[in-house]
């Protein structure tokens, strides 16, 4: 009888294990274990202020990797944040810490993305979901893009591993679908020419393997008419919407705004649009356009 119960309990446990991981998009604006900055730009004309804040009452160690094309090799560094500490630095200058010798970030030149991971000293979820961040890219004539980092929360307690499973069980999954409302491109002086920033969610920084993935777009205009387009990305890319496909132009779309649903095919991607439009009075304006998220998709990040 006892044996039967043992088998029954084991079966139940197996059934629990076999439960498919939730395919939900990761909840945003919450303290997270992994944060991904989609866009860092420092080229002499444009500069990026990188911000990171410890939202917990504990000291947190954070490992970060800059990734930039064409090599897609990572530049890594460690940061130690004291309880509730905010830090920020300019990408092109890096930082040697102000009063905190454990805040050392190297200077970064060019454009790319930044991924940071909490390396906890204990296994509890509370010890891992602790940080958040954003980047502010600015340039001449008031040019400003303020982009919040995509946050991925740890879901179950456990040791930190250098292979991070974004599977909906250990960590939340990467977003699968990105929903943007975008302003259709229009010629003019200045032109309305929004841009799309893409990076991959999967990374193998240990073996320096960077995969290319196709990115599919579904575009719905205000009359509910459906159009489509596609492009591809390897680690990081930034493209003008109208150069990806003419469906992003007002002439083809037929309405001033549309909804674009962006999805990676071979793997999950991180996507954000930078709106570049002209005000009714004719002034050029720039703003980051952060998407709404739906569904989740497994990904894996390997760090050295």
């Amino acid at each position: 009888m006892r044996a039967i119960w043992t088998v029954a309990i084991a079966s139940l446990c197996a059934a629990g294990l076999a439960t498919p991981a939730s395919a939900q998009a990761p909840a945003q604006r919450l303290p997270s274990a992994i944060i991904m900055y989609p866009n860092i730009l420092a080229d002499g004309v444009f500069e990026t202020r990188i911000e990171m804040v410890n939202l917990s009452g504990r000291t947190q160690d954070v490992k970060c990797h800059f990734l930039s094309p064409p090599t897609c090799n990572g530049t890594d560094f460690f940061i130690r944040l004291t309880p509730n500490q905010p830090i920020s630095w300019l990408a092109s200058r890096g930082t040697l810490g102000t009063g905190n010798f454990f805040v050392n970030a190297p200077p970064f030149n060019g454009e790319g993305s930044l991924k940071c991971f909490v390396v906890p000293d204990e296994h509890g979820i509370d010890h891992q979901n602790a940080i958040q961040g954003r980047s502010i890219t600015f340039g001449p004539d008031g040019y400003t893009e303020s982009i919040g980092a995509i946050g991925i929360q740890r879901l179950t307690p456990g040791e930190f591993s250098t292979t991070l499973e974004l599977d909906g069980d250990t960590y939340a999954q990467c977003p699968d679908n990105y929903h943007f409302t975008f302003v259709a491109s229009e010629p003019g002086d200045p032109a309305t020419e929004s841009e799309l920033i893409l990076s991959t969610c999967d990374e193998d920084l240990e073996n320096l393997i960077s995969k290319t993935t196709v990115v599919q777009f579904q575009i719905i205009n205000e009359f509910e008419q459906l159009l489509s387009a596609a492009t591809s990305v390897r680690c990081y890319d930034r493209k003008v919407l109208s150069e990806i496909n003419s469906v992003f132009t007002r002439d083809t779309l037929g309405t001033p705004t549309g909804q674009a649903i962006v999805r990676g095919v071979q793997g999950a991607v991180i996507a954000v649009i930078v709106d570049k439009f002209v005000t009714p009075a004719g002034a050029p304006a720039v703003a980051a356009n952060e998407p709404a998220l739906s569904r989740g998709r497994p990904a894996r990040i390997r760090i050295p």
Partner: peptide
Amino acid sequence: TRMPTEPASGQ
């Protein structure tokens, strides 16, 4: 998942 910090342990 949603109760990540223990503010009492901070300052």
